[in-house]
Computed example of a mutant assay.
Amino acid sequence: MAGYHRLLRRICDRYVVISEMLTLLQIGREQRRELDILFLAKYAQDWSEPPPMVHPRYGRELYTKFEVLSVLRGLARSVEPCDSLEAFEKRMSSGPAPDYIFQIYNREAVRNPEILVSSLCARTGVPYLGSPPNIRAMAEDKWITKLMARGAGLPVPDGTVAVSEADLDDPPDFDGPYFVKPRFGANSEGVDESSICGSWDEVRDRASALLAAGEEALIEALAPGLDVTVPVLGGPVAMHPVANHSDLREGIQTERQKRFLDPGKRGEPFQDKALCKELQESALAFTRLVQPCDYLRVDFRVAPDRSFRLLEFNVTCNLATTMSMNVGARATGVSHEAMIEHFLCYSLERQGVAAA
């Protein structure tokens, strides 16, 4: 453990905030010839040809996994796709273990699937991408995220949680309008324009529906403005912030938009240079609270007066070339391939599989 902390300090000293020039970690040629990766990702196949760019049911998910698989094939001796948790457990109980599990599996018919996947990976004893289960649990819980951020002096929206109908008897000590969404989950699941509630009666209806569906409700003061996210690579290295625009009311983003099943969403580099630096610094301050982590995204809401609030963080970010991680990397001058190679190499080095 002491060796790990020395490694983390060394990398932090080398890469803290993006400057005019940045050198990323790279995997050595010899290491590539010896590295065997298991690619754990929903819908992943051993593709020789690209799948449809937008699947009528799954949106861009298949093509995103193809993009990542294509990068990994250039970084390792072998890459073995695995598309389900059942197949993963069967594979890990038979045959030689891989050197590394590159896992971006975050959807399963179970509550808090990211924690389950991380726990299954940890049980194998094989180093894997991302964060340990306890860090993933913090990312899944948007309420705990905000309490942690507030404790560190970072601004967050006022909020409360409802875990039973009794929690909805009286309004909270902050005024509406309100925003109601599932306390747990990722990728804007359970979020749409009806999440915006103008009165406490509307909050009761929306939160009660979530409770009836087996969810806990997070109730917050609606934060007007623009969604801006900061991609962060292992080190930590903050990429250029990305502004995510949506045509929906209050600029909210839905799961279907993020999967390219519905139109009206676009991401682009955030243009406020001074505020970009503030957001990067805040993202790095928060990132240091959730280590170890190989890559993540810290999401903010920027108000018209340029004030901002931290909303959540994500440790199994979408790695599509069209999404925020790559938009921010590209605006920093980092290619999709170099971004993945950096946090893969960081993860390998952090867990003692290889040295950069």
Results as ranks from 00 to 15, higher is better:
residue 252 I to D: 01
residue 196 I to Q: 05
residue 315 V to P: 02
residue 112 N to V: 12
residue 98 P to D: 06
residue 352 G to T: 08
residue 206 R to A: 06
residue 191 V to C: 00
residue 178 Y to I: 03
residue 161 V to R: 12
residue 224 P to T: 08
residue 262 D to G: 09
residue 175 D to W: 04
residue 59 G to I: 01
residue 254 T to A: 01
residue 297 R to N: 06
residue 215 E to F: 14
residue 327 V to Y: 09
residue 202 E to K: 13
residue 14 R to Y: 06
residue 240 H to N: 10
residue 210 L to Q: 05
residue 154 L to D: 01
residue 271 Q to K: 13
residue 142 K to Q: 03
residue 122 A to H: 03
residue 91 R to D: 09
residue 214 G to W: 11
residue 50 P to W: 02
residue 9 R to F: 07
residue 228 V to R: 00
residue 227 D to V: 11
residue 158 D to P: 14
residue 288 R to G: 04
residue 106 N to I: 11
residue 258 K to Y: 05
residue 21 M to Y: 14
residue 110 V to F: 11
residue 355 A to Q: 15
residue 262 D to T: 09
residue 325 M to N: 06
residue 337 E to A: 15
residue 149 A to L: 07
residue 81 P to E: 02
residue 24 L to F: 05
residue 260 F to G: 02
residue 252 I to H: 06
residue 78 S to I: 06
residue 44 A to R: 02
residue 298 V to K: 04
residue 335 S to E: 09
residue 207 A to Y: 14
residue 271 Q to G: 14
residue 70 S to A: 14
residue 216 E to I: 03
residue 185 G to V: 03
residue 356 A to R: 10
residue 127 P to Q: 02
residue 302 V to R: 11
residue 15 Y to C: 12
residue 255 E to K: 12
residue 185 G to S: 09
residue 101 I to K: 01
residue 307 S to Y: 08
residue 220 E to S: 04
residue 306 R to H: 15
residue 338 A to G: 01
residue 185 G to T: 07
residue 267 G to V: 10
residue 53 M to A: 12
residue 48 S to G: 06
residue 207 A to I: 07
residue 101 I to M: 07
residue 306 R to W: 12
residue 305 D to Y: 11
residue 194 S to C: 09
residue 41 A to C: 14
residue 207 A to P: 06
residue 124 T to I: 03
residue 9 R to M: 05
residue 330 R to K: 15
residue 241 P to I: 00
residue 76 A to G: 06
residue 106 N to M: 10
residue 181 K to I: 04
residue 239 M to K: 08
residue 229 T to P: 05
residue 219 I to P: 03
residue 268 E to K: 14
residue 232 V to R: 04
residue 17 V to D: 12
residue 157 P to C: 10
residue 237 V to C: 08
residue 243 A to E: 12
residue 131 S to L: 08
residue 28 G to A: 09
residue 29 R to H: 11
